[in-house]
């Protein structure tokens, strides 16, 4: 009887381990497959034209996504300009200013916005900016992306400020230094590596967002440098090409996906280097 029970326990142990190994096999396998496939399919269809030419109508050889690549960079830059000051200062507020009640409201609304589906954010910005201005625009797209960007930056800013030794802030205030100088030259200065890496991670996140761009940036076949015109972006162009029926466009979509991934990984890599330098 006892021996049988021991055997059962041993068997159970082995069975559970096998099950877990199977589960991870089924999880890891598609992960490896998609990475390999993305790199192979992307690398085989990318070429010099792809990153220097405008899209061409179907049937013509060549053509690329140069305007989409630049469009993504423009949108990221504008989002960075709008979102960074608001994000960092809100993070400072949550750490240093107001009372507990106000902080809770700000933190809570950031969490709410962070959980809102990005497509709903796109619809909101459509109602706020696109339809009053009677046109899709770069401005609307970067504001939509900022709404995703700001809560992320707020959170990471607060977290990195919490890592600053409390004594440093107290000592600075005890010297009679003005609060805004303490914030700018002591708190933010000390926490800047953490804040910067948070910003880079948030940028990587918005680089791949497609849903809010559908109703704000809309897409464009040509170059744009004006804030009130529709603009193309890599994720939008990938989406459009992927659901098209043409073989050539499918290949372009893979190439675009590879470029987008390289951009995102570059940002994540720089975060890693940044954080390594710290320790």
């Amino acid at each position: 009887m006892r021996v049988a029970f021991y055997r059962f326990r041993k068997l159970e142990n082995i069975l559970v381990q096998l099950l877990c190994a199977f589960a991870s096999f089924f999880v890891i396998l598609p992960f490896v497959l998609i990475l390999v496939y993305l790199i192979v399919a992307g690398a085989s269809s990318i070429n010099f034209d792809f990153i220097t030419q405008l899209p061409k109508p179907i049937g013509e050889k060549g053509g690329g996504m140069a305007n989409s690549i630049v469009g993504t960079l423009i949108l990221m830059g504008l989002t960075f300009l709008i979102g960074t000051p608001i994000g960092i200062l809100s993070g400072v507020f949550v750490y240093e200013y107001g009372n507990e009640k106000l902080r809770k409201i700000v933190r809570f609304s950031a969490d709410l916005l962070n959980g809102t589906p990005s497509i709903v954010i796109g619809i909101l910005v459509y109602g706020w900016i696109v339809s009053p201005m009677h046109g899709f625009s770069v401005m609307a797209a970067s504001i939509a992306l900022s709404l995703i960007f700001i809560p992320l930056v707020l959170r990471t800013t607060e977290e990195s400020l919490l890592l600053v030794p409390k004594e440093l802030r107290d000592a600075a205030l005890a010297l009679g230094i003005r609060k805004w100088k303490v914030v700018c030259y002591v708190l933010i200065e000390t926490a800047k590596q953490g804040i910067l890496s948070g910003i880079l991670v948030a940028l990587a996140r918005i680089a791949g967002e497609t849903a809010p761009l559908l109703f704000t940036a809309f897409g464009n076949q040509y170059w744009t440098y004006r804030l009130d015109e529709p603009i193309s972006a890599l994720p939008l162009q990938i989406f459009e090409y992927a659901i098209s029926p043409y073989e050539q466009w499918h290949r372009d979509a893979w190439a675009g996906a590879l470029v987008l991934l390289l951009l995102i990984f570059l940002l994540h890599l720089s975060v890693r280097i940044l954080l390594k330098k710290k320790s």
Partner: peptide, 24 residues
């Protein structure tokens, strides 16, 4: 290495997943 792989995968944007699902 597997944990790093999982982190890399979590950075893939949703439109790329859609592309992969559609063709693979």
């Amino acid at each position: 290495p597997l944990i790093i792989l999982i982190q890399i995968i979590s950075a893939i944007p949703s439109v790329v997943w859609g592309l992969w699902a559609l063709f693979e």
